[in-house]
Design a protein around this nucleic acid. Structure first.
Lengths: 206, 206
DNA sequence: CGATCCATCTGAACAACGCTTAGATAACAT
DNA sequence: ATGTTATCTAAGCGTTGTTCAGATGGATCG
């Protein structure tokens, strides 16, 4: 009856869970986070508004799935940045730039990722070996050598992560535009900000 | 006919703009950001669902007004922290702690403040004399002395602001709980993170 | 092969939302 | 007193998240 299917469709519609997540990402990219309603996702996937509820408990759980894909993509981006950079000292900055660049290139997805994290008051799966947070800590550990305590390592990771997240959310603000052109572009701006993180702390050290 | 009014009511209902903003803040505090609908605000203020539209163009503009009050309160909190701290070197950390503490004490309000900023891609009124951003820059300038260029000053301010914002959003995450108790509480944790901001940058400087 | 089961999907409905419109009310100016 | 204008209400539109009864159709077992 139906034409030849491009993919195996084990059930009525096919792998709807996956189709819904893909539809959600499509809407996010083309229309932004404000347009991401469950009904719109169902519409985009070609099913009724009630269909998603057989695969996700509620809208939040669908967003969780979208966010999960986002974290996987971010993990991969950071992994690539770590491998591309040969010099140990520059690796941290590369990582930071890669992080912010990912957020700037996928603003809607990044927003969903962090909205989900805030709802759960936690970063998901970040302590696993290839989780983004763990990658940052490993990179810092490698650059800092053996003389650093576990606590200092953890604190430095948190500091770096917070700076990265803050910059990811704010580097697009209009106030910084003139400074960016003055420094010669987005990436130069990001590196310059990372370079100045120390200024904040060193006053207090003496 | 009506009983004695506690306040002067120049028009039908009184100063409804103000009443609406106050109602919104009340809802934010008691029920959180998810419950903050225009209709709920109108209900809380005792007017019809359509009444707010005579004072605000749409829901976003009401939230803008709420956010503005939030920024004023944050400005005041930072000003107080600056004055309380006598030592020039510790002033930056005090400022950072005050910033994050404000966000942690008023999480729903802080969220509205930043959601509005993201919609406009800008921090509001931050370049004014008593704006929070300007306060941070002035404090850094004072601590750094005369040898710092305008650009370095701006970059250090951005770095500090990003770290503060990132920490404000993430210091409540469950992953950091054990570390917090290990360090002896929230404030010690915040100071420790700020102290480690330099670690991120110094690898790249050599 | 046929009957049954159960996951899957639809259609209709509910309450709540943002927002608009038309009309009532009341303060203000003349 | 009259008219103007700002303010508020009532009703309604289209949308949303969610639920539920019932239709649909693979999968499993006789």
């Amino acid at each position: 009856m139906t034409l030849a299917q491009p993919e195996a469709r084990p059930y009525h519609h096919g792998d709807l869970s996956r189709a819904l997540v893909e539809a959600a990402r499509r809407i996010l990219e083309t229309e932004g986070p404000a347009a991401l309603s469950l009904r719109a996702v169902a519409r985009e996937a070609g099913v009724s508004p009630a269909a998603p509820y057989h695969h996700f408990k509620d809208k939040g759980q669908l967003l969780d799935a979208v966010a999960h894909e986002g974290w996987v993509a971010l993990d991969a981006a950071l992994m690539k940045a770590r491998q591309d950079s040969d010099d140990d000292r520059r690796r941290m900055t590369s990582l930071g730039v890669a992080y912010v660049t990912f957020a700037r290139d996928n603003p809607a997805l990044y927003r969903v990722m962090y909205d989900c994290s805030r709802d759960k008051d936690a970063l998901p799966d970040q302590m696993k070996e290839e989780g983004a947070y763990c990658q940052v800590r490993n990179t810092i550990a490698h650059a800092a050598g053996d003389g650093v305590s576990e606590i200092d390592l953890e604190l430095a990771t948190i500091a770096a992560w917070c700076a990265g997240h803050g910059l990811a959310e704010m580097s697009g603000f209009k106030q910084f535009e003139s400074l960016k052109t003055l420094l010669g572009g987005e990436e130069a701006f990001l590196k310059a900000v990372f370079d100045h993180l120390g200024m904040f702390a060193k006053f207090d050290r003496g």
